[in-house]
Design a protein around this nucleic acid. Structure first.
Lengths: 221, 221
DNA sequence: ATTAAGTTACGTTACGACTCGTATCGATAT
DNA sequence: ATATCGATACGAGTCGTAACGTAACTTAAT
């Protein structure tokens, strides 16, 4: 943000680290809702005012702690589109596995009220893995493995939302096998004969003969 | 739940209705986080204890109010799979449109801590629209429009998560057109040549000749 | 080099404000 | 006899901030 203060007593960097560590520890034990700043301060061997000097509230504190744990995201880049997508999703899922439902949901709930805070949440936690998958998609398109007219944003949302859904509502631990199935499903589609369905929806009762040559875009009306 | 008490002064049913109405009004104005029971009681022309007599906490109160607004879900049933899916999703989205992000996210956050409460949340708000889409998928499979070996649960999650994602993180109002695109994407798949990608991922450098006859299932090892 | 002044962080403690969920009370309805 | 009604009050937590006196570091003058 701004340049470090040139005057006065410098901040003790060990306190920063101790507070972030304590925050993560309390989060893992008690979740986000039961996290109190006094407990964090106690464990970090410091006090509440010292925390407020550094972060503007508990949302920002937790964001900082989680962002630190999230670390950097690496983008897989082999020549295998399916592998890359699966791997990207795995990284994605692994990232969220480190942020249990007890944390991510309530945290976002608290962040969603204030636009600026919300933006910080997004850029700190959601955007990084999302960008990784986006890059994978772009590469696959450039390689010719995905359709050139693909709506990357939409596809990204389909993938990302799937992971978030599982992470937030954690009714199932998304394992590697299911990741694979999801990628497979998305790549292949779920229809037996998509052109046929498309034609039907357009009111043509008989399916087009040259189904495979039919372009993805709907014919002009 | 249990049978109505045979003894003592009966509850005033008008209070039930007034409280639920007031709850919805406050939710729409202030969102979930800023909703206080005292404010609800004030608007309903009653008092806090009267509310606690009826619902065990504000989570249950809000759940009851939202479930009331959600109403019943109708399942579309034409012969057009694409239309039905699109329509199902639209109903899905419409259901969530009545529950702004300021409500659904924080509410779930509060419900997720207690398992029983979480189950109530699911059965009251998430399951109904989800079941509607599930029925549409089943019909489409029976009709032969979707692959028989389709993982319905997975597909359902892909669709539902997409809607939830938009509803919770509302960075985009999912309109009819985008719904259509999503269904289209899922039906058709995003790959230019899926069998080719599959083969490649299995380590075969040259693509199979009869790509279109290759079954979805991977060949036996 | 020493000293002095200025600034900021530190720990400690305390405070006001806000909700929550419950308790109490007399009155009322079955 | 029992349970609800309105009204009010209460204890318990947590929040974010405001004091204080002390400690650490920078700058400038001696």
């Amino acid at each position: 943000m701004q340049s470090p203060r040139a005057t006065g007593r410098p901040r003790d960097a060990r306190i920063d680290a101790a507070v972030l560590d304590a925050t993560l520890a309390v989060l893992d034990e008690s979740g986000y809702r039961r996290l109190t700043l006094e407990e964090v301060a106690r464990r970090a061997g410091t006090t509440k005012p010292a925390i407020y000097r550094r972060w503007a509230g508990r949302e920002r504190l937790v964001l900082a702690a989680l962002a630190r744990r999230l670390g950097e995201i690496e983008v897989p880049d082999t020549t295998c589109t399916m592998c890359d997508l699966g791997e990207s999703l795995s990284v994605f899922i692994a990232a969220f596995r480190r942020m249990p439902p007890d944390v991510l949901g309530p945290l976002y709930a608290d962040c969603s009220s204030e636009p600026e805070l919300r933006a910080e949440f997004m850029s700190a936690l959601f955007d990084p893995p999302r960008a990784a998958v986006a890059q994978t998609l772009d590469r696959a398109i450039a390689r010719g493995d995905l359709r050139a007219d693909l709506d990357v944003g939409l596809t990204l949302d389909l993938l990302a939302s799937f992971v978030h859904y599982r992470a937030l509502f954690g009714h199932a631990t998304t394992d590697a096998h299911e990741t694979e199935r999801a990628v497979e499903t998305l790549l292949h589609g779920i229809a037996t004969d998509y052109p046929h369905l498309l034609a039907h929806s357009l009111g043509l009762s008989e399916p087009p003969v040259r189904a495979h040559e039919l372009h993805h875009d709907a014919p002009a009306t």
